[in-house]
């Protein structure tokens, strides 16, 4: 009897979590997948089963490929740089220096600011006539560049904003991890003759691996998720130069009201993220040491 009661209790306890997860995560994924196999319902024509037609259309869609490619560049550049910067900043503010509390706060500030506000500030930075970047580069003979208006530079400008926004957030995790490392290890290593560089690569970095894995997974997800500033700064332009997958999904779903195609793109995005996460875990698992 107690066995059954325990089981019932256990299920009752996990029920709220299950309900929430199912309602807002699992069921939407399944319905989205089903939706991607149907055509979009129109007032006179209900949705009908079309199999993989939406996916075929997607493969033939140059904007999809452009968005995917943009997103890969966006993630491929912003993730490693923001993570590396986070480590460097964490090492810096973990040391004994004056005003480090202030520095930590300064590094963390971009994380606290709403992305929409941040985007507006950067919009001003990038302004070709009076922007901060322009003012800064004027002495070097570079002026009047329409940073956000050019296909060559717009995506890179957004990448810079993402790095600036993300690095401080990841720094906090590294800072917490660094403070877990016993100072005895540094002293033992210094007696053995290890310099700062050796100590970092042979001891600190390996001990930070669990944090790096966590940060990487989050950074990759964020690179596909964080699109707020695109709306404010470029709206995906010029000529889709800054369109990424999630942005494209929004445009297709809520501007063109093509829900079936939006569902198709969503499934692709989810699959991509799942693959990346699994890949990172498999790759990192052998190299991560958990204490």
């Amino acid at each position: 009897m107690t066995g059954i009661r325990n089981t019932v209790h256990a299920w009752l306890l996990v029920l709220p979590a299950c309900v929430l997860l199912a309602t807002f995560t699992h069921i939407p994924i399944v319905t989205t997948f089903i939706q991607s196999l149907y055509s979009t319902a129109k007032p006179r024509r209900p949705a009908r089963f079309v199999g993989l037609e939406n996916y075929e259309a997607m493969l033939a869609d140059p904007i999809f490929w452009k968005s995917l490619w943009n997103n890969l560049i966006y993630a491929g550049v912003s993730v490693p740089i923001s993570v590396a910067l986070a480590i460097v900043m964490a090492l810096f503010v973990n040391g004994k220096l004056r005003g480090r509390g202030f520095l930590r706060l300064a590094y963390f500030t971009p994380t606290v600011l709403p992305m929409i506000a941040v985007a507006n500030i950067w919009l001003f930075f990038y302004n070709p006539q009076y922007g901060l970047v322009d003012q800064f580069l004027k002495p070097f003979g570079i002026s009047g560049v329409n940073w956000l208006g050019s296909q060559d530079t717009a995506l890179w400008c957004l990448i810079v904003v993402a790095i600036w926004k993300e690095a401080g957030f990841f720094m906090i995790f590294y800072l917490a991890a660094l403070q877990q490392i016993s100072p005895d290890l540094r002293e033992a290593a210094s007696i053995e003759g290890a310099g700062r560089w050796t100590f970092f690569w042979r001891v600190t970095f390996p001990l930070l691996m669990p944090t790096t894995l966590f940060v990487l997974v989050n950074a990759v997800i964020n690179a596909f998720r964080l699109v707020d500033h695109i709306f404010v700064m470029t709206a995906g332009g010029p000529d889709n130069a800054t369109s990424v997958l999630l942005f494209q999904i929004y445009i297709v779903g809520f501007k063109f009201f093509d829900q079936a195609y939006a569902a198709t793109l969503t499934i692709v995005l989810l699959a991509l993220l799942a693959l990346l996460a699994i890949g990172q875990f498999l790759l990192a698992d052998k190299r991560v040491h958990y204490q």
Partner: peptide, 8 residues
Amino acid sequence: QSYALFPH
């Protein structure tokens, strides 16, 4: 005192 062994 803590041995200061490298855990990894």
